[in-house]
Computed example of a mutant assay.
Amino acid sequence: MPSAKKALHFMSSALVTATSVGVLGFCMSTQWAETTMECTTKGSSFSNGSAVVTLTLFEGNMNRILCPLFGGQDKFQVIPKLAQTTVVTPIVLHTLVVCLLALCLLFSACSILISLYNSVSNPYETYMGPIGIYVCSSLSACFSVVALVLFVVNVIVTSMAEDLVQL
């Protein structure tokens, strides 16, 4: 039977990690970016409309107001729509962001499983102990930061929103 201190330590670790998984899951389902662009004809400085592109991780919404020819609202799946563009960089970066976030969830799940196993194991036996929890949790945190930076780079540096409006 594990000691109360050991069980409390590892159970609280599992609870905190489960809470962080819930926060990560919620953040993966919310709006990630919104871009507003003015549409102009070539060689003219006169704006004849605008387009607002709103992106979540897997779905997007495009609201065109007289851009490029007529207005309209369009819902789309992000990865298939990016695959229709001729530029490869935005789809590669977006797919990499999704894969990194999946790895975040995987390492968080490993951290929870290690914590739960250690909370009920023998008093003098631990599987990877606190080091395993630290490694899994820090990998999850690092991957989530890299995913956020890559998404921002993808939206700001590449012409992802402009390519989506033109389709």
Rank of each mutant, 00 (worst) to 15 (best):
P2Q: 10
P2L: 04
K5E: 13
K6H: 06
S12D: 02
S13Q: 10
A14W: 02
A14D: 04
L15C: 13
V16Q: 01
T17M: 11
A18Q: 01
S20W: 09
V23W: 12
G25P: 03
G25E: 11
C27Q: 15
C27K: 15
C27N: 15
M28N: 14
M28F: 10
S29K: 13
Q31I: 11
T35A: 08
T36D: 11
C39F: 07
C39G: 05
T40I: 02
T40P: 02
S44M: 06
F46I: 07
S47Y: 02
A51E: 10
A51R: 06
T54Q: 14
L55T: 00
L57I: 07
L57C: 07
L57N: 03
G60W: 00
N61S: 14
N61K: 14
R64F: 05
C67K: 03
G71E: 08
K75D: 14
K75E: 15
V78P: 06
V78S: 02
I79K: 12
I79M: 12
P80K: 13
K81H: 09
K81Y: 09
K81F: 09
L82V: 00
A83H: 11
T85K: 12
T86P: 02
T86F: 04
T89A: 13
V92W: 04
T95N: 04
L96D: 07
L96E: 04
L96H: 01
V97H: 09
V98W: 06
A102F: 15
L103I: 07
L103D: 07
L106C: 11
S108W: 04
A109D: 04
A109C: 13
L116T: 05
S121Q: 11
E125V: 12
T126G: 05
T126L: 05
T126M: 06
Y127N: 09
M128P: 03
G129H: 07
P130M: 11
I131V: 14
I133D: 02
V135D: 03
V146A: 13
V146L: 12
V146M: 10
V146F: 08
V149Y: 08
L150Q: 08
F151H: 10
V153E: 04
N154R: 00
N154C: 13
I156Y: 07
I156T: 09
I156N: 09
S159H: 12
L164T: 06
Q166P: 00
L167F: 10
L167E: 08
L167Y: 09
